[in-house]
Design a binder for these strands. Structure first.
Length: 826
DNA sequence: AGCACGCCGACT
DNA sequence: GTCGGCGTGCTC
């Protein structure tokens, strides 16, 4: 500037940093970097800064020399990292996410960065009991804090500031965390318990063959134990490793007998953690060949990636998609690229982890929100250094500091849990993955047996490429699906209708064959509803098209969405009959009823109430795998990508409940659920059978499910879905919130008049989601979802939108924001 | 996110 | 006359 010309010294101009603070601030603030700290600063480094009267560890977004005119920046207090915490590409990604999902970069940072790396004065440090009392590697100040921590077990960061000379607290804390003396408390996060599996090993003494022979020859008592030991020795020879459940199952011995051997110190039980960063060897080991169909799909994907960066793999259940993934991962590893394998959190079970670890050993890092802070930092660093080649994680893994991603796999692509609903950023991990991959020039593979309509539409309109895999692996066929008409079932007690004779018979036959059964009941079953027993029509809300809930006490029907109540309906709107019955049964009731009907079978229930921790879920799955349970009654939880070898019957108890789900994507969700549930039957052979109990036999989705025909569902949805949500609307709301001028409304109306393409997203995944979230109960929301392609109504909408704009303008947060074009992720 | 500022209802 | 409710605004 002029001053510089005058002094003739541009280099002396001060250095400023735009810093991202983990808060929902309207914009990023700027701090000055004092001369003595200028040597090592880079974008991506953390800096300690003061904002108001609090201190935060922020991340430098940019460095520049333009002195802000409007305010006098404060100075950065400290630089916390010599090397940046992440790469420019992540900063770019954060910026996009903040723009696209309308939140602050600070909020993205909050979601991305583990607690241990984002200290603030409010942070509470927790003493790490595992560290012990060896303080020899600490310097004077570190020692002071460590001692205080050991004594009090936890300290507020502000208290640490009192102990020390306040000027440079953060670097000391950072070193203490690095040295594992303490960690940062994260509230409300359930503590992650590492999953363990008990391995059985032979006591080292008996590795000596003579000693072992000696032991067995002089076996005094407990013949069963000797038998067990022999079974163990046999297994260890054939398998190399033996886990407790496998041993007990194959030997038929009891846990007490095993305990006897352990007490005698012949065998040792060793708990090993799985799911954390394994210390397994870092080699790649692949011991299978792709089937013909898989190989064809694999080649097609390779070809597709040459044309387009995103490919949708539509593979029927049990077609062996995972094996294709494994091949693709292997190929990326050979090219020295990182791979991100995303799964919905609930599907991140030991089953899939074990499977990948078998092939890629220590190259894999697992990441999800239930890890403790130290482990998360550990993984963060391994991903950043490139040591972790494969990351297997839930949606939050997308925000790890990858160096060079080559491939992102989004498995179970249709799963709604990829969408973060509550804390900002309200991002969709599948869509964000597409953008992130573009930044790395990487590929994205979306895999599902039941793609979301959005993705399928993207494939149909050639935005993504599409590869289909219609054959089940190992010559297994898709299970036969049989509908059972509940209306035809004569029963004295209407409530007992939950189990038709056909299903009862099928269950009995499965039990006789020593096979397992899954009975599926949607959670919706908890709220009672009325259904016409002649045609299967269900009363719906006039405003919301949502199934009405029956309130017995008040003898009224109510909409749980808008709150409207209706008198009980006696005449069917579809067939005119007066024959209504009440349906009301949840998984608990079913479990009870099943246990009564099949007294000799072992029945278990899997739903949100019965499995609270992740641990329970895994355990239940394990029990089922080991055939310790014959009949599993469950909600959606039983669906998530699990393989159960011995299941040959799946029963859907109340398909009407699914087909009338309180959701704007009923048909799609219903199809997905039924197809996924059916997929659990007979995965390994051709004995699979699916029985669907339903009153509304005519529902088209049932036919598509029976034929396993996704294409038909898709076409049906395009033609018949009543609640279209068009991308221009999403764009429109985005615009409304981005701009303060009224003329924008005209642009919006213009957009509405242009060719409208269905995006099928009443459950919006695009940028406007947080806004729609806010206005969903307002008139605008109602207008938008019910808007037919009618110009008159568009005019009306325009007026409404203008009113809306006035309301929204008063919201400080969206005032005076610059015009930012909508960025399409592809 | 915090925290201060500020303007109206029930209390010693 | 005050204490305290939470609505609005600001933080480099």
């Amino acid at each position: 500037m002029d001053n510089d010309l005058f002094t003739g010294n541009t280099l002396a101009a001060q250095l400023f940093a735009e810093v991202i603070i983990p808060l929902a601030l309207p914009q990023n603030y700027t701090w000055a970097i004092p001369a003595h700290l200028q040597e090592n600063v880079q974008p991506g480094s953390r800096v300690e800064v003061q904002l108001k009267n609090k201190k935060y560890a922020g991340i430098i977004k940019t460095l520049h020399r333009q002195k802000p005119a409007a305010f006098a920046p404060k100075e950065v207090l400290n630089i916390l990292d010599e090397a940046p915490l992440l790469f420019p590409i992540q900063l770019q990604f954060w910026k996009w996410m903040a723009d696209y999902y309308m939140c602050s970069e600070g909020e993205v940072m909050n979601a991305a960065v583990p607690a241990n790396l984002k200290l603030s004065s409010e942070s509470i440090l927790i003493w790490n009991d595992e560290h012990g009392l060896d303080f020899s590697d600490l310097n004077g100040e570190e020692f002071l804090v460590a001692e205080a921590l050991e004594l009090k077990k936890e300290l507020r960061l502000s208290e640490v500031q009192q102990i020390l000379d306040a000027a440079h607290v953060y670097p000391i804390i950072k070193r203490l965390i690095d040295k594992n003396v303490c960690y940062v408390w994260e509230e409300l996060k359930a503590k992650y318990k590492p999953k363990t599996e008990t391995y059985i090993i032979l006591h080292p003494v008996y590795h000596n063959e003579d000693k072992l022979a000696d032991l067995m020859n002089n076996w005094s008592k407990g013949p069963k134990q000797l038998e067990l030991l022999l079974a163990y020795l046999y297994l260890i020879k054939s398998e190399g490793e033996v886990t407790q459940p496998v041993l007990l199952k194959k030997s038929g011995a009891s846990a007490a007998q095993l305990k006897g051997l352990i007490d005698k110190q012949v065998l040792i039980a060793e708990k090993r953690e799985i799911g954390r960063i394994a210390t397994l060897p870092k080699n790649v080991y692949i011991d299978f060949e792709l089937s013909q169909a898989q190989q064809t799909a694999y080649d097609a994907i390779q070809m597709a990636f040459m044309q387009k960066p995103v490919c949708l793999l539509h593979g029927v259940t049990a077609s062996g998609k995972t094996q294709i993934y494994i091949r693709l991962i292997e190929q990326n590893l050979l090219e020295g690229k990182q791979v991100l394998y995303m799964l919905p959190e609930i599907a991140l079970t030991t089953q899939i982890i074990r499977r990948l670890q078998k092939h890629f050993g220590g190259n894999i890092a697992i990441y999800h929100s239930k890890f403790n802070p130290n482990e998360r930092v550990e993984i963060w660093n391994k991903v950043k250094s490139g040591e972790a080649k494969i990351v297997l994680g839930a949606r939050s893994a997308l925000l790890l500091p990858f160096v060079n991603i080559g491939l992102i796999i989004v498995d179970e692509e249709h799963d709604p849990s990829y969408k973060q609903q509550d804390p900002a950023p309200r991002y969709h991990a599948r869509d964000s993955a597409v953008y992130l991959a573009a930044l790395f020039n990487a590929k994205v593979l979306l895999g599902s047996a039941t793609p979301s309509i959005e993705s399928y539409n993207n494939a149909q309109t050639a935005k993504y490429s599409l590869v289909s895999l219609n054959e089940r692996f190992g010559e297994a066929e898709l299970p036969a699906i049989q509908l059972i008409d509940l209306k035809k079932i004569e029963t004295a007690d209407r409530k007992k209708i939950m189990l038709s004779p056909q299903l009862k018979e099928a269950i009995q036959s499965s039990l006789n064959q020593k096979k397992q059964v899954i009975l599926f009941q949607n959670r919706r079953g908890y709220s009672p509803y009325m259904i016409c027993n002649v045609c299967g029509w269900i009363p719906q809300c006039r405003n919301c098209d949502v199934t009405l809930t029956f309130h017995k006490a008040k003898n009224k029907l109510a909409c749980h969405y808008c709150g409207t109540t209706y008198p009980v309906i006696n005449t069917c709107a579809a067939c005119g009959s007066h024959h209504f019955i009440e349906k009301n049964f949840g998984t608990e009731k079913i479990e009870e009823h099943i246990a009564e009907t099949f007294p000799t079978s072992r029945v278990s229930r899997m739903d949100y109430d019965s499995v609270k921790g992740k641990y329970d879920h895994d355990n239940l799955i394990k029990l089922f795998e080991q055939q310790k349970i014959d009949i599993l009654v469950g909600t959606q939880m039983v669906v998530k990508g699990l393989d159960f070898e011995h299941v040959n019957l799946v029963g859907i108890l109340d398909a009407d409940g699914i087909l009338n789900f309180t959701d704007f994507r009923v048909n799609e969700r219903a199809y997905q659920l039924m197809e996924q549930v059916s997929g659990r039957a007979g995965r390994k052979d051709n004995t699979g059978k699916v029985l669907i109990q339903v009153s509304n036999m005519q529902h088209p989705v049932l036919q598509f499910v029976q034929q396993h025909n996704y294409q038909h569902l898709y076409e049906f949805e395009i033609q018949n879905r009543r609640h279209f949500f068009y991308p221009p609307y999403s764009r429109l709301i985005h615009i409304i919130f981005r701009h303060k001028e009224n003329h924008i409304a005209e642009e919006a109306a213009h957009l509405l008049q242009q060719g409208l393409q269905p995006a099928f997203a009443a459950n919006i995944t695009g940028p406007a989601q947080p806004v729609v979230h806010r206005v969903r109960n307002l008139f605008l929301w109602e207008m938008l979802i019910k808007l037919p392609k009618d110009t008159a109504i568009i005019q009306q909408c325009k007026t409404q939108i203008q009113q809306q704009i006035i309301i929204l303008q008063s919201n400080k947060r969206y005032r005076g924001v610059d015009i930012i074009p909508d960025i399409d992720p592809v």
